[in-house]
Structures are given as C-alpha cells and as structure tokens.
C-alpha cells in the first residue's frame, strides 16, 4: 500500500511540477499530453488483457482499450483538422517515464496480486489525469474544439475512475 500510494503521489507531483515549471501550456503541448495519457492507459490495459485473471478486471481492461482508443482517434482527427502538430514536453515525458516504471513493476506480479495492483493503479492514474485535466489542461486550452474534447475526455475518465473504484471494492 505504501509503495502504491508513494508512486501515485510521485506521479501527481511530476505532472503538476512539470506543468507549473513551464507556465501556461500551449495547445500543441496539451494535445500531446492528452494523447500520451490515453496511450499510457491503453498500454496498461493491454498488459492487463494478457495478465488479469478476474473477469471484472479483464472486462475493465477491455473497456479502457475501447474508450481510450476512441478518444485518442478523436484527438488525432482534431489535431489534423486544426493543423496542429502535438509537441512533446516535460509533462508528457514525466508521464511516460512514470508509466514505464509502473508497467515494469506490474509485469512482475501475477494472479490476484496483479489484478489488485492493476486496478489500484487505474484508480490512482485516472485521479491524476482527471486532476491535471481539470486544473491545467482544460483551463489552458485556447482552441474551443480542443477544450471541448478535453471536457468530454474528463467526463469519460471520471466514469473510468468510478468504474475502477467499483472493481477495486469488489476485489477486496
């Protein structure tokens, strides 16, 4: 528990720290962060599709792949339409680094221990991303369509957070 909480706090600190250091984020950076955040959850879910044993956890992973791929496709369509090139940045890098570490950590677990750790991380991860969306990405977005896509994303991810919390409670 201590390790998990520590990782979650570290991720949150990284996200807000990196973003704050940069000042106001630009739309190309925001698009990159949002897309990266989605890709991270897809990677985690794909790992879960092969490793999870509990049927609710498997179904949750399927939901994550389906939804995040749909939202990321929408994001790609939008940046193409707006002629914006997503721009890598410190927040995206911090997110990717934390995610890669987490994926490696989870890969060492199996069975019920894996299921629990994956779902707990999904709760923490969606909390982090939703916090970043609410306090930084949405307020910083200049383009109205990008802002609206982020708002839809927030709504979807809040649902995921609650769904993950529900699955986590069932696993106890």
């Amino acid at each position: 528990m201590f390790v998990r909480l520590g990782a979650a706090i570290a991720a949150i600190t990284l996200v807000s720290g990196a973003a704050l250091a940069e000042g106001k984020l630009t739309d190309p950076q925001i698009a990159h962060i949002a897309y990266t955040a989605g890709s991270i959850d897809i990677a985690a879910a794909k790992q879960a599709q092969t490793k999870a044993t509990n049927k609710d956890v498997k179904a949750f992973a399927d939901d994550m792949v389906r939804d995040h791929e749909a939202v990321n496709k929408q994001a790609l369509d939008l940046v193409k339409k707006l002629n914006v090139t997503p721009e890598d940045n410190d927040t995206s890098k911090a997110l990717s680094k934390a995610a890669a570490d987490k994926l490696a950590e989870l890969s060492k677990l199996s069975g019920a221990a894996y299921d629990k750790a994956y779902v707990a991380n999904e709760v923490a991860y969606h909390k982090t991303v939703n916090g970043a969306l609410e306090t930084q990405l949405i307020p910083s977005a200049s383009n109205a369509e990008l802002k609206s896509l982020l708002q839809t994303g927030l709504k979807i991810f809040q649902g995921h957070e609650q769904h993950a919390e529900h699955v986590a409670a069932e696993l106890k």
Partner: peptide
C-alpha cells in the same frame, strides 16, 4: 415491465 437498464461499458449511465 419497468426495466432498469445501463451501459455495460459505462456503468454510470
């Protein structure tokens, strides 16, 4: 009947 229904992928719905 009175049927409660929801979305399996988004149980909040």
């Amino acid at each position: 009947g009175s049927v409660d229904y929801y979305c399996r992928f988004h149980p909040n719905m």
